[in-house]
């Protein structure tokens, strides 16, 4: 089975965000594989181990993203592709990303594509379903369980807390939700092997794309931090009195009851 994983490099969830010159400060940031994409990598490896085939991890980004690709290879993916847009693109949006991925997948045999249901940085959640539409594949978002039998696929999908049981077929694109699996840590032998696994680097040229073809449809005009939250009142006295005061404050001061 030809399995592909869409992966994005994101800030570590521990990172505090600061803004300088209208941009997110990223000089000293630690990066990780987007946590939802990590579920996708784990599930892809499991499916390959059960059904055979190859797992290819794909990312769009800059040179530095190689580190996250190597991590995915160390977890057990077979090969990686970095579509390096460093020299070609100033800014892109989800339209841009999907235009590039569409070109990448145009001449490839695909059985299954897995991605995260959302990235924890820009959080649009668009790339998976957008790509499925371009590739004319069925798409199931926010999956928490997947079983494949021949070309029939049975899926549990998280819908605002309820579970939807879905039946569909390959080729297919899914986006992964928390609860799907527990991503493994790369093992030491895994890390050693990952260094030798193939990592292909492509640029827009290699995909027969011009900058104009992928020009963003939206633009960010400003980035700012939310107003600093003032620490509020810590109530005092006996618990019963605190509770009384709280309800009264919620009613008269905060006006939420």
């Amino acid at each position: 089975m030809n399995i592909f994983v869409l992966l994005k490099r994101t800030f570590d969830t521990e990172e505090k965000i600061t803004v300088a010159n209208g941009k997110i400060e990223d000089d000293s940031a630690e990066y990780i594989i987007n946590p939802y994409d990590e579920y996708a990598v784990e599930e892809a490896i499991k499916i390959r181990d059960e059904h055979g085939g190859e797992v290819t991890v794909v990312t769009i980004g800059e040179e530095d993203a190689e580190k996250q690709l190597r991590t995915a290879l160390a977890m057990g993916a077979d090969q990686a592709v970095l579509i390096n847009t460093e020299d070609d693109l100033e800014e892109g949006d989800q339209f841009t990303t999907v235009k590039i991925l569409e070109a990448f997948f145009s001449d490839r045999d695909v059985d299954l594509i897995l991605g995260g249901n959302v990235a924890i940085d820009e959080a649009s959640g668009q790339v998976g379903p957008r790509l499925a539409e371009r590739l004319d594949m069925p798409c199931v978002t926010t999956i928490t369980k997947i079983e494949i039998d021949g070309t029939t696929v049975t899926i549990d999908r998280d819908v605002e807390g309820d579970v939807e049981k879905v039946e569909t077929s390959l080729p297919l694109l899914v986006t992964c939700q928390q609860g799907l699996n527990e991503p493994r840590y790369p093992s030491l032998p895994g890390i050693m092997k990952a260094k030798k696994k193939p990592l292909e680097e492509l640029e827009l040229d290699d995909l027969d794309l011009e900058e104009d073809d992928v020009e963003a449809k939206t633009k960010t005009t400003e980035i700012f931090l939310p107003p600093e939250k003032q620490a509020g009142k810590v109530l005092e006295g006996e618990t019963a009195d605190q509770v009384k005061e709280l309800v009264s404050l919620l009613k008269t001061e905060a006006k939420v009851l």
């Binding site: 020009e215 449809k217 633009k219 931090l225």
Partner: peptide, 21 residues
Amino acid sequence: IVFTRPIYSGKAFEKKEVTDG
């Protein structure tokens, strides 16, 4: 038309405009 949306799960916000269509 200017949209505001949270990024980094609300650790920051961005203003976004549609440039085409």
